[in-house]
């Protein structure tokens, strides 16, 4: 049964990743792309979680936490950068 679940989740995650990548490539603004990258990282973390659950190991758990923290730091940095540049047009 677990192999069936693995296949189904693989298909769902692939479709989701395709959606996020379309948004990254098409997104009208930088913030849209950041948001979509965040979702792509979350999808990656989800895929790692499914792998751990199906194969019953915990090797990647800290990788999942690290991915979510990297996504957090990345989007906060870009958001601050965008907002700052907007507020002080003289300095850019």
């Amino acid at each position: 049964m677990m192999q069936v679940v693995l296949a189904v989740t693989a298909v769902i995650f692939s479709l989701a990743a395709v959606g996020a990548i379309i948004r990254i490539s098409r997104g009208p603004s930088l913030l849209d792309r950041v948001l979509a990258t965040d979702v792509l990282l979350a999808i990656l973390g989800g895929a790692l979680c499914v792998d751990m659950a199906v194969n019953r190991h915990l090797n990647n758990l800290m990788l999942v936490v690290a991915i979510s923290i990297i996504g957090f730091i990345g989007s906060v940095t870009v958001a601050r950068f965008v907002a700052d540049r907007r507020e002080q047009p003289n300095e850019s």
């Binding site: 769902i12 989701a16 959606g19 989800g46």
Partner: peptide
């Protein structure tokens, strides 16, 4: 499967 569907929902929403 539901957790994976949530990611798909996020992508559809995006």
């Amino acid at each position: 499967i539901v957790g994976a569907t949530m990611s798909l929902g996020a992508a559809i929403g995006l």
